[in-house]
Design a protein around this nucleic acid. Structure first.
Lengths: 109, 109
DNA sequence: GTTTTTGTTAGCTTGACGGCTAAATAGCAT
DNA sequence: ATGCTATTTAGCCGTCAAGCTAACAAAAAC
């Protein structure tokens, strides 16, 4: 499952948001959801496998952290589409400006 | 289906990218995929219903365009998480700087 | 070494998604 | 009116995601 699919799930987005603020162990994360432990564990696995989070073992617990790099890749795709869209919009503005000027000079000439 | 789920599908992301560049009618979009027309039509419906695209009727065809606003909302969520993550990282940097300074003044004193 | 704590894996069920073909709808042309 | 083109809707099917419970693994504590 890729990062886009992983982020499609609201529970996983919440986990990402939690880890953006600070790292947490699996139990801490699970305790904040009204959902069985194994279900959260699976969500964490999905996030791990697509590279959105990583963890380190610490005694019996696993401390998860967000992988800012992978999230950034997704963000950049969104940004790129917006840029393309807005750049086109800007061009349209310029185009209309040109049309307006030509119209004015036509009126004069 | 919300915008995050809609963007989880690669075909729909391609459509979004196509429409970021310029508006296109349904047939034009469909022709660029090795997939039956109705399948693309369904993808367009999903994108419509979550507000990522809109269309206007033009003769027998429907001209689709990207709704930059909705895409922007998704982008902003990503950005917010990254900001939180990076702000924390910056704080850590400052913290380490403080520690280093204290260490230095300890060495002197 | 057994028990406790913490977390993951296995196995099952259910519901939704995404593809297809066939049929319906809507505008345009003749 | 009839047919032509563009697009969507209906209905079907296979796959897969996400939830649950029960079982397993590994480190820590006693």
């Amino acid at each position: 499952m890729d990062a886009f699919e992983a982020l499609a799930d609201p529970t996983r987005r919440q986990i990402v948001a939690m880890l953006a603020a600070r790292e947490r162990n699996a139990g801490d994360i699970a305790s904040r959801f009204d959902m069985a432990g194994p279900s959260i564990s699976r969500h964490l696995k999905v996030l791990r496998e697509c590279g959105l989070v990583a963890y380190r073992a610490e005694a019996t617990s696993r401390v998860y952290r967000l992988n800012e790099q992978r999230l950034s890749e997704v963000q950049q795709w969104m940004q790129a589409q917006l840029d393309i869209c807005r750049e086109r919009f800007d061009r349209l503005g310029e185009h209309l400006d040109r049309m307006k000027k030509e119209e004015e000079s036509d009126a004069k000439g």
